[in-house]
Every structure is written in structure tokens, then in C-alpha cells.
Design a protein around this nucleic acid. Structure first.
Lengths: 360, 360
DNA sequence: CTGTTAGCGCTTTCAT
DNA sequence: ATGAAAGCGCTAACAG
């Protein structure tokens, strides 16, 4: 068992003082080429792994982060994410993290634009972005890249930008999995309906499109793609929806499964309940409070979980680590897709508090 | 935001030196009643939460742990558990943990007895037990309790003993969930077969019984309990099994689903493959290498995951914390039941490496 | 540019 | 029985 290597050891091996080693490790400059070389040589030999908890007590500077995600209410998806961010800050309590939350309205492109504009003008060390609008995000990330400010995506990512990490579910795979599930729990050759909740100025289409692609791929592979119906739902016009759904399932008895590719499955579940539509399986996404209620009531059969809390936790942790140690390529990590049903939802929820296995 | 409280703060408030506060916190004795009282009073006021990572660097003593679980080979359930234990030791690298693994043969009561006997005579600070045999375990835990040595169960627990914590899945709920799943993915009123792998001297019956109870409860609620067949499989006699299974499914076309309530589902999956039995859904437990292979090959439909790696990690962490801070009642935590299928198994596995969110 | 040093919160030794 | 002080690994200010 190789003994744990410390800065002092590296210093000794390189014939340099620990202070200089630290300067190298943190790219803090003021190091002669010769010293740098000697230390780099040693670092190549040994596998030095700093302990962030020890770093954290001696760290004197502070880090200014911005977290920008859609506005949310208690019990919603982004509330869990927020919890994870707070958790990270408490676990790394000794690091002076000045974390500013800046929310935008995910249904209002202009709100996002102005918030991102503001962020782009701020002096910050790192940014965590839960993106919705492509162009606005590209605008922001371009400036961040120019200014050499690392940023991390959570929940989903924007193509052709260069985050230092990304914590999100694989949307395509999510759709594919949902297709497989609905197929499994309905009789052979059933028909399905895909609820599309249309919202004015909804650019989150982005994430939905990928899920839809995954879903379609599954259905094609299973030779069921012609069995998929679409039903458009406008969040703003409930009366129209009531009328719409009233007869739909009577007219389409062949439809045995329903899918909602965003976190609003509970809305559909409630329609089902009011209109006494039984025997139609329903699968949705995200463990929001209202989705969980519908799941427990037996109105939703499966929910896909994407661990938003861990996304928040890992986002902060990764960013902080990068800032402290100057790591550049943290890679993009993909969250698992948790399959949640009435019978395991409580265990899942209770455990998520413990799962943050930090030593506190 | 209340400022974080430190030992120094407590000392000041109590008008005592930090050294004495530490002695109280760790029950290290040599403290006058008056000092103790003053400090206790302050502790009642403030919510002091020591940071284990800071404790760990200054800790000079070492802790001797014993981990006793069934023997295993690479890729099996207990191998994942082992990984979690190692992970904990690496995360808490600065704590001098002397961890001795003592394996017993889970199919041999005498092996367990002699190993537990040996443990009972050792001088250790804490024990982690993955129990199989009830009486042998009670023998050991009785002695540990006499000697005031804390112990923790992982994987399952033994009734009427008093571990300081337990990290295990809810077996009853696991069986219930499996019943629900097999019902969901088979046509209405299907028949099911429960594979019972009988093993000589198999006392792990214990865990299987609870799962079976959960399963039966579901089937009764769904009014399907008369649809359940049982098929006994002896691990030691493969020829007999071959003969047995050969005709079974031909004779019982009404059987559309199969359940295995231990980690050997892949054995059944392989029989299915050799005998070209298709159209029978199969659900098993644990992400062993061979189960995962069968899952990916489409021979197993669902696997229940119990996070053995986290069980190992949390077991060590909880025990260490208890030893350092003298906490007594860590409670019994229940692992979630993860539902794994071909479409999310890779994400799940890949992530488990990252999920250990400790700051390293 | 670099070595020395103080200090983070916590534990433990060592005088008292 | 208790306070003072040293030290764990790491960082950053400071003096040169």
C-alpha cells in the first residue's frame, strides 16, 4: 500500500520548498521555469491527490458563483436542484462561496435574455446554467469563454458550446426507455398518445425533441410507430383541454398508454381522474410533489427520476474543485435514469437525504 | 445565517479551555463535574457539529474494524459491497482504520460459526456484519453487546438484536414490488413461477422468506395468488434441472412470468436460453456480472438493485463516526429499491462511480 | 522568485 | 483536572 503523498513530500523530492509546490499546483504564478520543471517532473512520477477538505480550511480567498436556472415554486423540479446546491455549500462550509441565484422565466425568452445579459457583465468565478433558450445561452457562454470563466450545465446542455462539465440525464435514452416501459405494461399492439403541452414561446422544445426522438426510435424498432397519436394541450387554455379530453379516449379505445415528456404528467393524471378515464397507463418525468401525489394515488404508473438534487450538488462541487485546483476537463457526466413507481417512491425519497454521503 | 460554531467558541462560552471541551465531546474522562456541567449547558444551547474531515487529520489513534460477510468472487453482490468499504477507507484516508475482512461460507453453518467465534474473541472497536445464519449471528452479537462493541448490519438484519445501525433493503417491499412488476408486464391473469434455488444448509432462507411474503401479499391483493407456481431448483444437481425445465413451460403455457428471489436469476435465464423458452418474463435481484449480462442480452427483464456499494460505504462511515464521536443511535436506514432494465443499466453502473460524492 | 511562517479547526501530549 | 502548545495537511501572506 503506497503511502499517501503530501505536498511536503513533493517538495522534498523536487528539492524545493512546499510553498513553491503549492504555487505550481494552483497555477498561482511567480515560479521560475526551473522550479516548475523540477516539480512537474515529480508530479508526473507520483499521483498527488489533494484533499479538498483540508484545502478548504486553509483557503482564504472566496469564490463568487452564479447559479442561473428557471424560476420555481416549492415542490418543483428546480426546487430539488436548489436543495442540492445548498447541500454542497453546507458540506464545503469552510470554503467561502458567495453563490448568487439568478432566475429567469423559462416561458419568456426576454426574461432569460436580460438575466443572461446581466450575468455576462458580472465579475464572477464560475457559472452554473440550467439552460432553456439556445441562442440566449450561446450568447452568455460565448462571453464566459472569452472571459475564461468556467461554466457548467445542469439538466440539459446546448450543443456547440464548451462547458467544463455537464450533469444531465440522457434525454434521448429517457424517451427510449419510456417507450419501452409503456410497451411493456400495455397489451401487445396497443396504441399510445403523446401529450404535448404547448406553451407560448416554449423553447424547452429542445429537451422535448430529444426525448421524442428516443421514443420514436424505440417505437420504430418495436414496429409500433404507427400506433402513436399526439394530443396537444395548451397550459393556458384549460377549458379547451377539458373539452378535448372528454371524448378522446372514448373515441380511441385502442389507446392504452399515455406519455408526457416533461414534468407535467400530473396535469394529465388529474384530467384522467376527473373524466374517469381508467385503464390508460401513464408515464411521466420528474418527482415533483404533484407527480408524486398522482403516482401514489395510482394515477401515474411510472416516473423517470433524474436526480436533480445530485445535479446541483455535483455542479457546485465540480465547479469549486475546478476553481481551486485549476482542473480543466471534468468531462460530462450523465445521470442515471431512475424508474420510480408507487412501490419504491418512498424509499427513494427518504434515502436521497442520506445518499449525500459526505462526512458530516 | 448563524455563524458556524467551533470548539473554541464553546470553550469561550463555558469559560473553559478548548482541550477540556474536546475531552467532554469525546467522553475521554478526566473532567471535573463542574466543567462538564458548564460545557453540557453550552452544548445544549448551540448545535455543534464537528467536521469529520478536520477531526480526521488530527486523530492520532487508530480504529480496528472487522467486516464479516460471505465469501465472494469477482462480479458478485458482495464484491460491490467490498468496493464500497474500500471507498470509505480511501475517503477517510487520514483516519487510521485497520479493517480486517473475515469471510465465511454462506452455505456452511460451521464455517460461519467458527469465523464468528474467532471474531468474538478479538479485540476490536467495531464490527460490520452481513448476516446469514440467525443463531450464529445472535451468538456473536450477544458477546459484542457484552463487550460494548458496536456493530452494524448490512444487506439484512437479524431480529431481536441491537445493531447501532443497519443498511439493507426492505425485503418485504422488494418482493411486493417484484410481484407488481411481473403483473404489469404480463397479460392479465397470467400465471407465474417462482424459482426456488434450494441449497444444502441454506439459511439465507431468512431473507428469501421475507421477500416471498411481500410477493404473496401483492398477489393476494391483486387476486392472483392462485396463479403462482413453484419450481425447486437445486444448484448442486444441474442434470435434474435440465430435465425439469425442459418440458415445464411446454406443459404450462399459461405461465408467462418467472421470479427469482435471490441473486441467481442468470442461472434461470441461461436455462431459458438453452431451452429456447421465449415469451416468459423474468425478474431477478442484484446487479451481479452474470445478471447484467443476461439483462443486456434481453433474457432478464428487470433486476432489483439494492446499492451494495453504498451499504459498504455507509456502514464504515457510520461506524467510524460512532467511534469517534460516541454517537449511539444512528438508526436503521433502508436502501432504495432500484429498478434496472436493459435501457438504464449502463447509466446506473457508470454513475455509481461518481455518486460517491465525497470531496476528493 | 522563493523559503519561512502563521493559521484554518481539531486532537492530544505535556506540563502544571 | 486543566490550560497551553504542538501538529495534522494545506494555503497565503510576508520578508527577503
Amino acid at each position: 500500500m503506497a503511502k499517501k503523498i503530501r505536498i511536503k513530500d513533493i517538495a522534498q523530492m523536487a528539492g524545493i520548498s512546499p510553498g513553491t509546490v503549492d504555487r505550481v499546483l494552483h497555477n498561482r504564478g511567480n515560479v521560475s521555469p526551473s522550479a516548475r520543471q523540477a516539480i512537474d517532473a515529480v508530479l508526473k512520477e507520483v499521483n498527488y491527490q489533494p484533499n479538498i477538505h483540508l484545502s478548504s480550511i486553509s483557503l482564504r480567498r472566496s469564490y463568487k458563483l452564479v447559479v442561473t436556472v428557471p424560476e420555481f415554486e416549492a415542490g418543483e423540479y428546480w426546487a430539488s436542484f436548489h436543495k442540492g446546491v445548498k447541500r454542497a455549500m453546507s458540506v464545503f462550509e469552510h470554503i467561502n462561496i458567495d453563490c448568487k441565484f439568478m432566475y429567469y422565466n423559462q416561458f419568456d425568452l426576454y426574461s432569460c435574455r436580460s438575466v443572461f445579459k446581466e450575468i455576462s457583465e458580472m465579475a464572477v468565478d464560475g457559472v452554473i446554467i440550467g439552460p432553456t433558450f439556445r441562442d440566449e445561452t450561446v450568447f452568455l457562454t460565448n462571453i464566459l469563454e472569452e472571459k475564461n470563466i468556467p461554466y457548467i450545465y445542469v439538466d440539459s446542455q446546448i450543443e456547440y458550446t464548451f462547458p467544463m462539465a455537464c450533469f444531465a440525464a440522457n434525454l434521448y435514452q429517457c424517451g427510449y426507455l419510456m417507450g419501452k416501459l409503456i410497451d411493456m405494461i400495455t397489451p401487445a399492439d396497443s396504441h399510445f398518445v403523446l401529450f404535448q403541452t404547448e406553451r407560448v414561446g416554449d423553447a424547452s422544445a429542445n429537451t422535448t425533441i430529444l426525448r421524442k426522438q428516443g421514443l420514436m426510435t424505440y417505437l420504430q424498432e418495436a414496429n409500433l410507430h404507427t400506433n402513436l397519436h399526439r394530443l396537444s394541450f395548451s397550459v393556458g387554455d384549460p377549458e379547451r383541454n377539458e373539452a378535448l379530453i372528454g371524448n378522446y379516449f372514448e373515441e380511441h379505445p385502442e389507446v392504452r398508454g399515455a406519455l408526457v415528456l416533461n414534468s407535467r404528467a400530473s396535469v394529465i393524471a388529474n384530467y384522467f381522474e376527473r373524466h374517469h378515464i381508467n385503464g390508460v397507463k401513464l408515464i411521466g418525468i420528474d418527482l415533483t410533489d404533484s407527480n408524486i401525489r398522482a403516482l401514489k394515488a395510482g394515477r401515474i404508473d411510472f416516473l423517470m427520476g433524474q436526480r436533480p438534487e445530485q445535479q446541483g450538488y455535483l455542479g457546485v462541487k465540480t465547479l469549486i474543485q475546478a476553481l481551486i485546483y485549476g482542473t480543466k476537463d471534468q468531462g460530462g457526466y450523465i445521470m442515471p435514469l431512475d424508474i420510480i413507481m408507487r412501490e419504491n417512491v418512498d424509499l427513494y425519497q427518504e434515502f436521497s437525504d442520506i445518499a449525500f454521503v459526505e462526512g458530516k
